[in-house]
Design a protein around this nucleic acid. Structure first.
Length: 650
RNA sequence: GCCACCGUAGCUCAGCCGGCCAGAGCGGCCGCCUUGUAAGCGGCAGGUCGAGGGUUCAACUCCCUCCGGUGGCUCCA
C-alpha cells in the first residue's frame, strides 16, 4: 500500500496509508471526541468520509467555530427535512439553509400546526438517537434529475445553479436524500442541540408570484450551553421589548378604532419625542440647517414629478378626489422641499442649502408588517434635504456621518453598522432608469466612505428609487435588523424639478445634488430603539419622570411640596407621592415608571433641608442638601449625560 | 397583503374534551394603619369571555366569517 504524508498542523506530519479518510486522521490526531464536525483538507471543507489520496494538510473544523456551526445548522436542516418528509410524505423540500443561530427549511406542503411542529421536533430527536450516517454520493446530472424527478424545486436548482451537464452531490441519511454540496456532519448523533421555534409562510425564490411554501425555523448549536445561552438571550430580549415597556411607562397607545400602525403619543412618550427633537434642533442649528413646515398632502402632479407615483405608489395611500384635482398624502417630504429650493433663483453662495423639517409622513405599509412603534404608518421625522454641488457632496455626507455618530454616542448606542445600499441593475423598473448616473453616483458615494475610513457592507437592491444610500443598521433587542438612519444621494431631482443656481461665472448651473438624510430614524422607531437599549431606564435628560418624590408619612407633605416646587422651578420633571401607603410599597409602585431618581423624605430630611436619593439600581445617598441636588441634577440634564451620576459617582 | 398561532376585568392570567350565578392577583375607589427603602389590613366597584353568524335543549367552551394581537414572509424609516 502506498503511503502519503499528512500535515496535521502544529508542525506535525504523519504518514498514513493512501485512501485513509479525513475523519480517521482527525480521530487519530485529536481523538474521537474532539468536537470536530468536518475536516479542512488542503484548506477545503470536506466530510469526515473524504478519502485522502495524496499528500495533504488536514485540520479539524470544530463544531463551535463559525464554519462548524454553519455545517451543524446545515445538517440540522437536512434532519428537519427528513423528519418532515417521513411524517408528511407529500411534502416537497425546497431549500433549507443555515442562518444565524440556526436554520430553516422551506417545504411545499399543507400548513403545519403547532402540534404538528412538536411532532416533527420529536421525530428529529428520534432520528438523532438512531445515529444515522450522512452519506455523500457523487452523481452526474442525469442521475440527479432522476433522483429528484418528483421535486420541481430541486430540478429548478439543478437547472439554474449547476447547468445542464454538470454533476453534483447528494447526501443520504436513512431513506432521506437531499441535493446538497455539503459538507455535513458524519452522523445525526452530532445534532443534539437544536429546537424548532416557529413556522411561517415564504415564497419560492422570495417571489410572491411563485409557489407559497411552509418555512420551519429552528435554533441549532454545537453545545447544550450554546443553545441555552441563546434561549436565555431571547428571554432577556423579551424583557426589553418596547411594546411591553411602552405599556408600563405609558409611552404610547394604539387603539383599533383609530387604526393599526397609528400610534398615539401619550404624555410620557411625548416627552421623549420632544427631547429628541429639541436636541436635533440644537444640533442642526450648529450645522447650519434652516427649518420649514410643509403640508401633509399635495397634488398628484407633484408626486408624478418627483417620481413617487411611478416608483413608490405601493407605499402611498390611495388618492383623494377633490373639486380641483387629485391629492395624495405625502410619503416623503422631498418633493415639497424641492419646491422651496426652486421657489426663487439660488446663488452658489447659498449652497449647500440645508432644509430641515420636523413633520409627519404617511406610508401605506402592509398591515401584517406593523409592529408597535417599530413599524408604523405614521412616521414622525427629523428630516432634511441638502442642496449642493457635486464637489460639496463629500463634505456634507461626512458631516452627516459625524452627526449621526455624535447622536448615537449621546443616546448610548454602540451596536450599529454602515451599509452602502446600491441599486439592482436586474430590476430597473424599481428605479429611475439612468444606469450611467447610478454607476457614477454609487462610485462617488463609495469613494466618500472609503476616504472616511468607515467600514460598511454593500447591499444590492436596497437603494432608494432615486439614488444610492448610506444606511446605518441597528439590531433590535429581539434580533431584527432595522435601518436607524439614512443618507441618500439623489441625482434625479435636479432634472425632475429643474433645480439650478447661478454659479461663480454668472451662468445657470443645473448640477444640483440632493442629499436626503434622517439620522434619527423616525421618532417612532427611534423611541422604540431607545426603550430597548435602556430597558426603559432612560438617562435623566430623557426620563419622562426625572424625579419621583416619596414621603415617609403625612407629616412630611409640606416639605415634599417644597422639594417638588424647587425641582419644578429648575425645569425638572417631578412627581410627588404623599399617599398613605408604606414607603416600600411606594418605591415598588413607582419603579414601573422608571424615574431617574426617587427622593425619600422623612424627619431627617425635613430637619436638615436635605433629600435622600435612591437611584434606579437601589443605590442610596442620604443627607444631600436640597439645593445641591437641584443644581447637580439640572447640570446632568443640561449636559445630556448618558449615565445617572448623582448616586453612583460618590 | 400572505401563512401559522393567539384574543376571558386597565394589567398578568385561571376556567373551556358544552351543562349550576365567569374566577384570582395586581391596579382603581373607600376606610383603618402613620409608616425609613421592591407588596400593612379590610371592604367595594369593574367583564355583552374581541365582533357577528351557525350547530345544540344548552356555547366562554364546537364550526364559519370578520376585527385585533404575536411570530415569520414580502416590504421597509
Amino acid at each position: 500500500m502506498a503511503m502519503i504524508t499528512v500535515d496535521v498542523g502544529a508542525e506535525a506530519v504523519h504518514e498514513y496509508t493512501r485512501g485513509i479518510t479525513a475523519g480517521e486522521v482527525i480521530a487519530n490526531v485529536h481523538g474521537r471526541k474532539s468536537g470536530a464536525v468536518a475536516a479542512l483538507v488542503n484548506g477545503e471543507e470536506r466530510d469526515f468520509s473524504h478519502p485522502l489520496d495524496g499528500d495533504c494538510t488536514v485540520a479539524p473544523i470544530p463544531g463551535e467555530s463559525d464554519a462548524g456551526l454553519y455545517i451543524l445548522r446545515h445538517s440540522c436542516a437536512h434532519l428537519l427535512a427528513q423528519a418532515v418528509t417521513e411524517l408528511h410524505p407529500d411534502a416537497k423540500p425546497a431549500i433549507g439553509p443555515p442562518i444565524e443561530h440556526g436554520f430553516y427549511y422551506d417545504f411545499h406542503m399543507e400548513p403545519v400546526s403547532e402540534e404538528q411542529l412538536r411532532a416533527i421536533g420529536k421525530r428529529m430527536k428520534q432520528l438523532v438517537k438512531q445515529n444515522l450516517k450522512l452519506e455523500r454520493e457523487e452523481l452526474d446530472n442525469a442521475a440527479l434529475r432522476k433522483l429528484f424527478g418528483d421535486n420541481q424545486f430541486k430540478l429548478e436548482i439543478l437547472d439554474d445553479k449547476l447547468g445542464h451537464d454538470v454533476g453534483s452531490s447528494a447526501y443520504r441519511q436513512g431513506d432521506f436524500v437531499d441535493l446538497c454540496r455539503g459538507p455535513h456532519v458524519p452522523s445525526t448523533a452530532h445534532l443534539r442541540w437544536f429546537n424548532l421555534t416557529s413556522t411561517s409562510q415564504a415564497y419560492w425564490r422570495a417571489d410572491r408570484e411563485r409557489e407559497s411554501l411552509v418555512r420551519i425555523y429552528g435554533l441549532c448549536y454545537a453545545t447544550k450551553d450554546g443553545l441555552r445561552t441563546r434561549e436565555r438571550q431571547l428571554e432577556e430580549a423579551a424583557k426589553r421589548d418596547h411594546r411591553k415597556i411602552g405599556r408600563e411607562m405609558e409611552l404610547y397607545m394604539i387603539d383599533e378604532l383609530l387604526g393599526k400602525g397609528l400610534p398615539i403619543w401619550l404624555p410620557h412618550g411625548e416627552v421623549l419625542k420632544d427631547e429628541i427633537e429639541r436636541y436635533a434642533v440644537e444640533t442642526e442649528e450648529a450645522y447650519g440647517y434652516v427649518r420649514i413646515t410643509t403640508p401633509v398632502l399635495g397634488k398628484q402632479q407633484l408626486f408624478e414629478a418627483s417620481g413617487h407615483l411611478p416608483h413608490y405608489a405601493d407605499s402611498m395611500y390611495p388618492p383623494m378626489e377633490m373639486d380641483d384635482g387629485t391629492y395624495y398624502l405625502k410619503a416623503m417630504n422631498c418633493p415639497m422641499h424641492h419646491l422651496v429650493f426652486r421657489h426663487r433663483k439660488r446663488s452658489y453662495r447659498e449652497l449647500p442649502l440645508r432644509i430641515a423639517e420636523y413633520g409627519t409622513v404617511y406610508r401605506n405599509e402592509l398591515s401584517g408588517t406593523l409592529s408597535g412603534l417599530l413599524r408604523v404608518r405614521m412616521l414622525s421625522m427629523n428630516d432634511a434635504h441638502i442642496y449642493c454641488t457635486l464637489e460639496q457632496v463629500a463634505a456634507e455626507v461626512a458631516a452627516n456621518i459625524r452627526m449621526a455618530q455624535d447622536y448615537y454616542a449621546t443616546f448610548g448606542f454602540n451596536d450599529y453598522s454602515f451599509r452602502l445600499s446600491l441599486w439592482d441593475p436586474e430590476k430597473r423598473g424599481k428605479y429611475i432608469d439612468q444606469p450611467e448616473n447610478w454607476e457614477a453616483t454609487q462610485d462617488h458615494l463609495q469613494g466618500i466612505l472609503d476616504d472616511l475610513g468607515v467600514e460598511y457592507e454593500e447591499a444590492i437592491g436596497e437603494a432608494a428609487f432615486y439614488g444610492p444610500k448610506v444606511d446605518i443598521q441597528f439590531t433590535t433587542a429581539l434580533g431584527r435588523e432595522e435601518s436607524i438612519a439614512t443618507i441618500q444621494l439623489d441625482f434625479a431631482a435636479k432634472e425632475r424639478f429643474g433645480l439650478g443656481f447661478m454659479d461663480e461665472t454668472g451662468t445657470e448651473n443645473g448640477e444640483v445634488f440632493v442629499i436626503h438624510r434622517a439620522p434619527l430614524s423616525t421618532h417612532e422607531r427611534f423611541v422604540a430603539f431607545l426603550t430597548e437599549q435602556w430597558m426603559g431606564n432612560f438617562p435623566a435628560w430623557l426620563a419622562p419622570v426625572q424625579v419621583q418624590v416619596i414621603t415617609i408619612s403625612e407629616k412630611h407633605r409640606d416639605y415634599a411640596a417644597k422639594v417638588r416646587d424647587a425641582l419644578a422651578a429648575a425645569g425638572i420633571r417631578v412627581r410627588i407621592d404623599d399617599s398613605d401607603h408604606t414607603i416600600g410599597k411606594k418605591i415598588r409602585t413607582h419603579r414601573k415608571m422608571r424615574p431617574a431618581y426617587m427622593l425619600i423624605l422623612g424627619d431627617e430630611e425635613v430637619a436638615g433641608n436635605t433629600v435622600g436619593i435612591r437611584a434606579r439600581d437601589g443605590g442610596q445617598r442620604n443627607g444631600v442638601p436640597l439645593a445641591d441636588f437641584v443644581v447637580a441634577l439640572a447640570a446632568e440634564v443640561t449636559n445630556r449625560s448618558p449615565e445617572l451620576r448623582l448616586v453612583s459617582g460618590e
